[in-house]
């Protein structure tokens, strides 16, 4: 039973290249196809170009050559960074409502949407607090609520839980997975944690250190509902083994 709030986006990258001045080509002829509604985990060694890839997909950075096509052409995109990156001078509510404010949505409407998302991530009573008064996990949840407030059809996440303690991270993973099940958006999730990639996604890819080519592309066929019980499941272990082997070869 999937209620599709934000709709879904599919995307395709054809021979995408990108380099930076004073450096070798970071991404060389990358081809990648992501189906609508997929939860794709992206693994790869540090510095291989994962963040660059996400920024290009978000149209924050143009590729040097090659094409990135999405369907619809202008998807509602949201981005979650490694750290929460909230505006410290704004309350939790005003932070969550920021994207809608920037898009010109009226006060009542954007607060209503932001409140709904804050409730979703369990922060309903914290809306008048300031980021400095929150724990790291709470800040990340505000960041998540901010991303969800626009009902994105494409959610790009760049190591969002890397800075959190394990218990907080485990809980947020389950929560994110539930949100994805309920909304059916397309998620691209960059992570350094192999077990996190396998636990969360429906498909995982491993990128090469040089040139950022896809060296492993595997569906993760685990039950749709992912709970903590799954963490000790041997099927998850098998996926982790396979991803780990590919990472180690790099």
């Amino acid at each position: 039973m999937r209620v599709k709030i934000g709709g879904v986006t599919s995307l395709q990258l054809d021979r995408v290249r990108r380099s930076f001045p004073s450096g070798p080509t970071v991404i060389e002829d990358l081809n990648l196809k992501v189906d609508a509604g997929e939860f794709l985990a992206i693994l790869g060694p540090s510095g291989c170009g994962k963040s660059t890839l996400l920024r290009m997909i978000a149209r924050l950075l143009p590729p040097d050559s090659g094409t990135i096509t999405t369907s619809p052409q202008h998807p509602r995109t949201a981005f979650v960074f490694q750290d929460a990156h909230l505006l410290p001078w704004r309350t939790v509510l005003d932070n969550a409502a920021l994207p809608l404010e920037l898009q010109g949505v009226g006060r009542e409407q954007r607060y209503a949407a932001a409140r709904a998302e804050l409730a979703q991530v369990g922060l309903a009573d914290a809306e008048q607090r300031y980021p400095a008064q929150l724990s790291g996990g709470m800040r990340m949840r505000v960041s998540l609520a901010r991303a969800l407030a626009t009902s994105p059809s494409l959610l790009l996440m760049d190591e969002p839980f890397a800075a959190l303690d394990e218990i907080t991270r485990f809980n947020l993973e389950v929560q994110l997975r539930e949100l994805w099940c309920a909304r059916g958006m397309t998620v691209l999730f960059v992570t350094h944690s192999i077990s996190e990639a396998a636990f969360l996604s429906n498909r995982a890819i491993v990128l090469a250190r040089r040139g950022c080519a896809v060296i492993l592309d595997r569906p993760i066929d685990l039950p749709a509902e992912r709970t903590h019980a799954l963490r000790s499941d041997p099927r998850l272990g098998a996926h982790i083994q396979e991803l780990f082997a590919a990472m180690e070869e790099e």
Binding site: F81, D83, L87, L98
Partner: peptide, 28 residues
């Protein structure tokens, strides 16, 4: 913060809005 500049760009904020809602308060 470059990430916040990205965020404002992602949601289509103009230079003026970015100045008043992000760069200016951050520089306070």
């Amino acid at each position: 913060d470059p990430a916040l500049r990205d965020l404002f760009q992602l949601y289509g904020a103009s230079r003026r809005v970015t100045l008043f809602k992000l760069r200016f308060p951050a520089a306070l």
